[in-house]
């Protein structure tokens, strides 16, 4: 696991003290500096005071809805934000993502997942992955020469498949909503392209997954979208 030379600051906005304590324990043992806020008001204040690198926002706050906090925050700040929810309702998740949240986690989640999401969020906000070669699991993409390899063997991608893969690589580790992908590729709403997107994803999976019926790299977030996972590079 990479050591964070500089301590990144994480702000937790959650009304449950016990959750905050556990998160603090997890994060501090992974070299993050942690700030806590129990209400929306405290949270907004803490954002201005402490300039966190990542915010973990619980959607159910006692004084205001987390969604409102998200909206107000995005008016002036682009700080990476991960939404925490209890019940997995896709429409809430999509709304949060479309309102500018970087990712989401449904409680209960495990620490590994949380840390992975935080790492992805920080890396994206700091534009850390400018490396010309993307690697995850058995997938290797050389962005300059446009060569895609899977299990060390070159695979031929169509133009659409390649641009689709590039969108995922640019946002590696992040969940991408159907409508986001659709806008990026076709500049059109998802409803018009649902079927086409599905087919392209299926085609892409056949080329970059060991078992396309149970994808492990390009996974489905049911009802929300897709995610290109950051897996340990296969030997």
């Amino acid at each position: 696991m990479e050591k964070n030379k500089i301590k990144y600051k994480v702000l937790i906005i959650d009304d449950e003290a016990q959750i905050r304590r556990m998160l603090r324990m997890t994060l501090e043992s992974n070299e993050y500096k942690v700030f806590e806020a129990g209400t929306a008001k405290e949270g907004m204040l803490a954002v201005t005071m402490n300039h966190p690198d990542v915010i973990l926002l619980d959607l159910g706050l006692p004084d205001d809805s987390g969604m409102n906090v998200l909206h107000r925050l995005r008016e002036w700040s682009a700080v990476p934000l991960i939404v925490l929810t209890v019940q997995d309702s896709e429409s809430v998740m999509i709304e949060a993502l479309d309102s500018g949240a970087d990712d989401y986690l449904t409680k209960p989640f495990n620490a590994g997942e949380l840390l992975a999401r935080i790492r992805v969020a920080i890396r994206h906000s700091l534009r850390m992955d400018e490396s010309p070669v993307f690697r995850s699991g058995s997938l290797e993409v050389d962005i300059n020469s446009r060569i895609t390899k899977f299990s060390k063997e070159e695979v031929k991608l169509t133009a659409t498949e390649y641009s689709l893969l590039m969108i995922f690589i640019r946002n590696a580790g992040k969940v991408l909503t159907h409508s986001f992908i659709s806008r990026e590729i076709w500049s059109a709403p998802y409803a018009d392209n649902a079927q086409i997107l599905r087919v392209h994803i299926a085609q892409l999976r056949k080329k970059i997954e060991h078992n396309p019926s149970v994808p492990e790299l390009l996974t489905t977030e049911p009802g929300v979208g897709y995610r290109l996972k950051m897996l340990p590079v296969a030997e």
Partner: peptide, 10 residues
């Protein structure tokens, strides 16, 4: 359904 089955199995 195929997509959903994949994600559930995962």
């Amino acid at each position: 359904i195929a997509d959903l089955v994949g994600s559930v199995v995962l």
